[in-house]
Design a protein around this nucleic acid. Structure first.
Length: 1096
RNA sequence: GGGCGUGUAGCUCAGUUGGUUAGAGCGCUGCCCUGAUAAGGCAGAGGUCGGAGGUUCAAAUCCUCCCACGCCCA
């Protein structure tokens, strides 16, 4: 990328003074653009999809978002996941096709266009013209694609927007037809009814989405959206039993307009009903006794006399006289058996309201419809979508259903069929557009059979690797287990039309068209003349019936549920099977290797992909899926544009950087499908905790390498260094690479960033911290080869980490790669980006687990030593004479002995004493091992535990020696008692698992003076820093001080140390003057000191 | 109403087949260290483990009910 820079030196450049991640990222974006880096990566995938290239393909499906809104965190989170995995797989040698997709059809855009045009509902749209309406949808649907491309690109996501797929493309739509035709041929498609909410004023059925958009008055009781509290009639009607003279069934309804369509009465099979005589009128009635009491309590019914009790199921089948004459023909089948107007059983009948006997109009309620289907009742729907009664109900013909309520009630009263009339205020769904009440009615629609194939769906699901696992086995698995047939059709306009042509003379005769060519042939059109499959082009196409003389085949009016289109995406994005070029690719890459979407897609895209792949190919649609949880606002609420309770994603990226946002998101609970609270502070902290440590490490290397003129090109980077510190760090990095590979191979993204932070911590706070002096030596130093090792090791460690983290933080890793490999001329042909390189392999021969354990022991000893110094208030600058480390484990003892210099240097101590026995340092106490003893002892546990706790030093010693003890009548073995070590409060000691550390806190004159010398060095270094001197600047130094400080500064050895540490070529100590270009006055142990220095 | 999750320190989260001082990181406070670091080290404060019952010698963990939040379905 900077290959054009002819003057590129092979040494590392000094690091930039400022760390500005967003700015750095924008530079990387430009260089990716200039050098076609993203394009080269994407083309590898595209080539594989066309059967070219030599890389094995890794199939990734990108789920299409609706393009009608702007991208938000609900897209950015899965977008990040969808970038990390393909980048990783690309670095692992696969070709990953990554095509962006757009969901173009459906309600979101239709609703927007309805608003824009001010045209609402089926009738208005048809009057306006489907062609014009669809043209407006087409023109508007991609209005935000530029913003999407900008945000997704800025996020660093590599995905092909040029070769994207759109569900409105003719090629996509043709494959949807093909998919449907396959289902048709397999006999999986049937015509049926579904009860749907209808807005009568719009003359249109509404989707659940539209219903929920209704009046925003959230009902305080049901808390249902889209409902509004209205007053409705509440009527109780008597139905005369045919088989019992003078006896009636009392039923209740709030929708009198459905009574003309009554076909049955439902009772709960297990409820008990009473037969009573109303004292006042002598009428005999059946109903549920609790409900009767309620009517009586409200004084709607007078006193009654109970005659008998009967179970609901014993009422089943009893015939009654039709309430109205209109559909009395359904009373009996042709064979004379009872058909309608009888009592049926239904579990859903409740006793919360009404009479316990429910009026059934199968065309006007979901429950009624189900009961009607089960009982074989006819479907009677005496009105169209406009809600007006037709001629089959002559008394009310032309009246709107709700308006007819009054007349119907009056008719019932006149016929003496009304027991009670009241009103009721209750929540009822209303139209989001017209504000009028919705009517539920059974409408004809098209279904795909799913229920029959549940077993196969479940079996195929077992092959899918779900992350997290519980979504697959729980939510998704349960859903499959009770899957219902899929209503595929919508009475809408902007969608892929159902390719069914029906004969106008014989509705039974249908043709399902599976391709454009087939339709052209049927309709006698010139091949290639049909270029668009939307309704305005397809609906007018008719052709003569092949079976019914004089019949004309006309398309049914419905379009597909847009979920059917997105579920067809694996085939449709490749124009399968029509595109010969990609046919094989599609077949070879089913199921896909990987998809990722949000938890809300469980019943959405995940489901439709699965159902269609199962129906078409008998296979699952994907092998691995990461399900992310929902991103909530910081307050735990849903993110809401209206409430503005979250920061704009573009602003967050330009403020903190995309790498920070990505790292933050993919480390969150959301990648385990749990909800996460998005916090801007979290992103900010991620810069500091994830990106900066790596920058700091590079900064260190670059600072010294450029000062030293060290060149990685001249170095032997494969050299096996001798220093244990180097070997440890190299081993540590191999462990990191292995861990990252394991996590990524398992699609467990949430652990990637913590593993990276951990290795950076070891790099910065142990490897560099302990090794920094190795980089200070001059060129001619006798230990020059050690310095070479130090540079080479640090360089190779940074390079490896840079590659391994590249999929996660693509920008900073690219920047680092440019500095380490490209600027220095190490990158070869085609290696100009880290993202075109191979992911690091684990080099097992560089792993040294024993060494890693040793270093862990050393670091523990240091931590304990620092804790003691803290408690004893002895700063680390003050040297101490001796540290004693007691450890029973021999390998630990050998480790601290071997790396004694590290411990002594880090803790500023002169001598180390290692021993096995810590008996002089700690007191021992005994505790029962509950886990081991609990099961065995049961109730005696408490008593024995008490006895163990009381063991004294002698008893513990005896137990340690023999490995067994008798307590409270129980024989306890070595496993049953835990010995705990505790240092006594008055010794300078600390104990931890397997190790006890003691410091000798006695300070003699020599130690004290050395401590003072180090204090002086500290003041001088601080002054150098405030004076902003270069780290290699030589100085001359003057100190004004007296007493012990002067004695320390005049001591020959200590003075040499001061000069060496501070790069002082001269050192004067006087009692009065300490002038110079830079001076600083301070106090050490109560004595004044003035430091003066001049650059030389 | 149903299904699936979630609820542990101010924040983000660990917490193994139930096992006895409930942990980490961040933040806060104090001290220390600094010849790379925008850092770092050591410690401290901070918890009715959502609530109530129950099982058990022993419950954050198992059971029941309830509450809150999220997604999906009705």
């Amino acid at each position: 990328m900077s290959g054009s820079d002819a003057s590129a030196s092979s040494t590392l450049k000094a690091p930039p003074a400022q760390f500005d991640l967003p700015k750095l990222e924008e530079g990387i974006l430009r260089s990716w653009e200039e050098n076609d880096v993203e394009g080269r990566s994407l083309r590898q995938g595209a080539e594989a999809a066309h059967g070219k290239g030599d890389r094995p393909s890794y199939a990734f499906y990108d789920g299409p978002p609706f393009a009608t809104g702007l991208p938000h965190y609900g897209h950015i989170l899965p977008g990040s996941i969808k970038d990390v995995v393909p980048r990783y797989k690309s670095m692992c040698g696969f070709a990953v096709e990554r095509r962006f997709g757009w969901d173009c059809h459906g309600l979101p855009i239709e609703s927007l266009v309805e608003s824009d045009l001010g045209v609402h509902g089926q009738a208005e749209i048809e009057a306006y013209g489907i062609d014009k309406f669809n043209a407006a949808c087409r023109a508007g649907v991609l209005r935000f694609t530029a913003q999407w491309r900008q945000t997704v690109g800025r996020l660093g996501r590599w995905v092909d927007f040029d070769d994207d797929y759109k569900t409105m493309d003719p090629s996509f739509m043709e494959t949807v037809w093909w998919v449907f035709r396959q289902l048709w041929d397999k006999g999986l498609i049937y015509e049926g009814h579904r009860v749907q909410p209808v807005s009568p004023m719009l003359g249109t059925p509404l989707s659940n989405f539209e219903v929920a958009q209704g009046p925003q008055e959230k009902d305080p009781v049901t808390r249902k959206e889209g409902h509004k509290r209205v007053q409705d009639p509440s009527v109780t009607i008597r139905f005369a039993l045919e088989d019992e003279e003078g006896a009636y069934l009392w039923a209740w309804t709030t929708t009198p307009w459905t009574l003309p369509s009554n076909l049955a009465l439902a009772v709960h099979p297990d409820l008990t009903y009473v037969k009573v005589r109303v004292v006042e009128t002598g009428e005999i009635a059946y109903l549920e006794p609790g409900r009767l009491a309620d009517y009586q309590a409200r004084e709607r019914v007078g006193a009654t006399e109970e005659l008998s009790r009967i179970k609901g199921k014993d009422l089943e089948g009893r015939p009654y006289v039709p309430l109205f004459p209109y559909f009395a023909k359904y009373r009996e089948h042709e064979d004379g058996s009872r058909w309608a107007f009888k009592v049926v059983c239904a579990e859903y009948v409740s006793t919360e309201s009404g009479t316990g006997i429910v009026h059934q109009a199968p065309a006007f309620g979901e429950d009624d419809y189900q009961v009607g289907q089960r009982e074989g009742l006819p479907l009677v729907r005496p009105m169209g979508l406009d809600g007006k009664f037709d001629e089959t109900v002559p008394d009310f013909a032309g009246q709107f259903a709700k308006d007819a309520d009054k007349a119907i009630i009056a008719a019932l009263r006149d016929g003496d069929k009304l027991v009670d009339q009241d009103t009721l205020v209750h929540p009822y769904p209303h139209c989001y557009r017209t504000d009028g009440p919705l009517l539920y009615m059974a409408l004809s629609t098209w279904f795909m059979k799913v229920e029959a194939d549940r077993d196969a769906l479940v079996a195929n699901n077992a092959q899918i690797h779900w992350v997290p696992e519980h979504v697959g086995s729980g939510r998704f698995g349960n859903w499959l287990g009770q899957a219902r047939d899929w209503n595929l059709a919508r009475n809408r306009f902007w969608g892929t039309p159902l390719p069914i042509w029906r004969c106008d003379k014989n509705p039974e005769e249908m043709v399902c068209v599976g391709s454009i060519a087939e339709l052209e042939e049927l309709a006698g059109m010139a091949p290639g003349s049909l270029t668009d499959l939307h309704r305005e082009f397809i609906d007018p196409i008719t052709f003569p019936s092949a079976k019914t003389p004089g019949g004309t085949m006309q398309r049914v009016t419905e379009v597909f549920d847009c979920w059917f289109e997105s579920g067809s995406m694996p085939y449709a994005q490749n124009h399968y099977p029509f595109d010969a070029d990609r046919k094989e690719y599609v077949e070879n890459n089913l199921p896909a290797d990987f998809i990722a979407e949000g938890l809300d897609q469980t019943r959405g895209w995940f489901y439709t992909l699965h159902v269609l792949a199962n129906a078409l190919f008998g296979r699952p649609a994907f092998k691995n899926v990461i399900v992310n949880g929902m991103v909530l606002a910081e307050d735990g609420k849903k993110m809401s544009k209206r409430l503005k309770n979250y920061p704009d994603p573009n602003e967050v990226i330009s403020k903190y950087g995309a790498d920070a946002l990505r790292a933050y998101l993919i480390s969150s609970a959301a990648v385990r499908a749990e909800p996460m609270r998005f916090s801007e502070k979290g992103v900010r902290d991620t810069v500091r905790m994830v990106v900066l440590p790596l920058w700091n490490a590079y900064n260190f290397l670059a600072t010294y390498a450029s000062a030293d003129g060290w060149s990685p090109q001249a170095a032997d980077l494969d050299h096996r260094p001798e220093s244990p510190l180097d070997r440890w760090m190299l081993s540590r990095v191999q462990a990191f690479v292995g861990q990252l590979r394991a996590e990524l191979d398992d699609y467990a993204l949430s652990n990637v960033v913590p593993a990276f932070q951990s290795v950076c911590d070891d790099l910065n706070n142990w490897y560099i911290r302990r090794g920094r002096r190795r980089y200070w030596r001059g060129r001619d130093d006798a230990a020059a080869h050690d310095k070479q090792d130090a540079y080479a090791t640090l360089f190779s460690v940074l390079t490896t980490i840079c590659h391994a983290i590249a999929p996660t933080i693509p920008f900073f890793s690219e920047w680092l790669y440019q500095r380490l490999m490209v600027d220095t001329g190490l990158a070869g042909e085609g290696e100009d980006s880290v993202h075109l390189r191979a992911f690091p392999e684990v080099q097992a021969d560089r792993r040294d687990e024993a060494l890693e354990r040793d270093v862990a022991a050393v670091r523990q000893a240091v931590a304990l030593g620092l804790a003691i110094r803290e408690r004893e208030k002895i700063g680390v600058r003050r040297p101490l004479a001796k540290i004693t480390i007691a450890a029973p484990d021999e390998t630990v003892r050998r480790a601290v002995q071997t790396y004694a210099d590290e411990i002594l240097g880090e803790l500023n101590i002169k001598a180390l004493d290692v021993r096995a026995d810590d008996s002089g340092l700690v007191t021992l106490s005994a505790k029962a091992n509950f886990k081991a003893l609990g099961k065995r002892l049961g109730k005696r546990m408490k008593e024995v535990a008490g006895a163990v706790a009381k063991m004294d030093a002698a008893a513990i010693a005896a137990f340690s020696a023999s490995g067994s003890v008798e307590l409270a009548g129980e024989t306890l073995g070595a496993e049953d008692i835990l010995i705990e070590r505790q240092v006594s409060g008055d010794t300078a000691a600390e104990a931890a698992e397997g190790m006890t550390v003691l410091l000798d806190t006695k300070v003699d004159d020599a130690l004290r003076r050395e401590g003072l010398a180090r204090e002086l060095i500290n003041r001088i270094q601080n002054l150098r820093k405030t004076a902003d001197l270069d780290v290699s600047q030589r100085i001359s130094l003057r100190l004004r001080c007296g007493g012990e400080l002067a004695a320390a500064a005049r001591d020959e050895t200590l003075a040499a140390m001061i000069r060496a540490e501070t790069l002082a070529e001269s050192l004067e100590v006087s009692g009065d003057e300490a002038g110079g270009a830079h001076t600083h006055a301070d106090e050490i142990d109560g004595d004044n000191v003035v430091v003066g220095l001049d650059p030389r």
